[in-house]
Design a protein around this nucleic acid. Sequence first.
DNA 1: ACAAAAGTGTTGAGAGTACACCCATGC
DNA 2: GCATGGGTGTACTCTCAACACTTTTGT
Lengths: 224, 224
Amino acid sequence: MEKIKLSDYPQPSVTVDVVVFTIHDNELKVLLVRRGNEPFKGKWAIPGGFVDMNESLETAAKRELEEETGVKNVYLEQLYTFGEPKRDPRGRVITVAYMALTNFKEIKIHAASDAADAQMFSVSKLPPLAFDHKQVLEYALKRLKWKFEYTTVAFSMLPLRFTISQIQRMYEIVFNKKFDKRNFTKKILSLNILKEEGINKEVSYRPPMLYSLKKNLGEIVDII
Amino acid sequence: MEKIKLSDYPQPSVTVDVVVFTIHDNELKVLLVRRGNEPFKGKWAIPGGFVDMNESLETAAKRELEEETGVKNVYLEQLYTFGEPKRDPRGRVITVAYMALTNFKEIKIHAASDAADAQMFSVSKLPPLAFDHKQVLEYALKRLKWKFEYTTVAFSMLPLRFTISQIQRMYEIVFNKKFDKRNFTKKILSLNILKEEGINKEVSYRPPMLYSLKKNLGEIVDII
DNA sequence: ACAAAAGTGTTGAGAGTACACCCATGC
DNA sequence: GCATGGGTGTACTCTCAACACTTTTGT
């Protein structure tokens, strides 16, 4: 039998797309870039780009993320790979979607070379999106909620030290639903994942206790 | 600016690998094929193959699955995409891993053209695996347990009509842990996902009630 | 009668839910 | 003293876990 060469098989293009979530102004936001090239020139899209030959998928996602946001240390997780043959009009392009969570203040948006503009959008007021990015974003949102419910990833959207009210507000935004303050506090504290970090004196109301996350980000814990 | 062509960017090879789980002889089994070609010739591997230019990833996974097992209607779910640059010594190969669940009796193993042999292995007695397939299998196992706990996918491993004891045995095998029969029965019945299908008279002990799944496979339900 | 697996209830502990008022600070 | 968010307890309901004996059939 002949020796098989990789080039005997068709080779598609492979990209990574990174859905960057953050919370700002009491809304869940996602980073979108306006495309500077065809196809879908001028349309909004999830930031991403081609995978280099010598970098892993996760490295590619981190690289794209840093190019667009300047953020270096974020929670990053692979979501799903979208590979319908016609999803890109230029030809066969398979994209590996990632989700990144970060604190709003860490982000310094700068539109990368191939983007005309970049901006955070509230997930409840999205513009029409390029490619199959609506589907990608819906998938990411589902995963985000799942992860919020069962793991500690949410804390990657908060500053290093935070109050319990901040946690609760974040959960209320993501689930679009109010929680009872006493029950929420009781539940979060009973999980034993927080460390007391002293009292924040710099507020004009009763000074709240600050906490930090004791355990590892993304650890599986029933939050809600 | 120049028009960008896809071929301006490096194009890796893309494969799908399908982790096929089933239950037989009171063990959780997985299908492996013995590689007929280099690299890793003679080693066991998760079945899979290159994605054709005009088929979706899921179609490719279904095609590979049918080639190896003859099984047509299975539960199939995308798991994760593995893309370390050095995972295949021939060059850059990115693989999209899928998980398939099926009833043992549906499977007619036939080693595909590029495989020297194919066989079901107990997940507790695995041979050394080619590529990064050990990692892929570990990921699949984790996902399998998660899905068993929170969805109805498990029922895809049973025949169309089954007894409650069969469900319980299946869960005991996957979680490697005994459950209390009364509590298990109570929990399963309270979920309201089963339909009574009459009594199986063809046994030499007290004839059990047969059930079928009322709701959709994979639906999210707290099973355990 | 015996072997094999099916079927069936109760109790106690712990978790979740509903619900409202006082506290500490800056201005 | 008032505006702002912070902090706290109880009672009820529901779910989960522990636990063992009887039933039905074929041989």
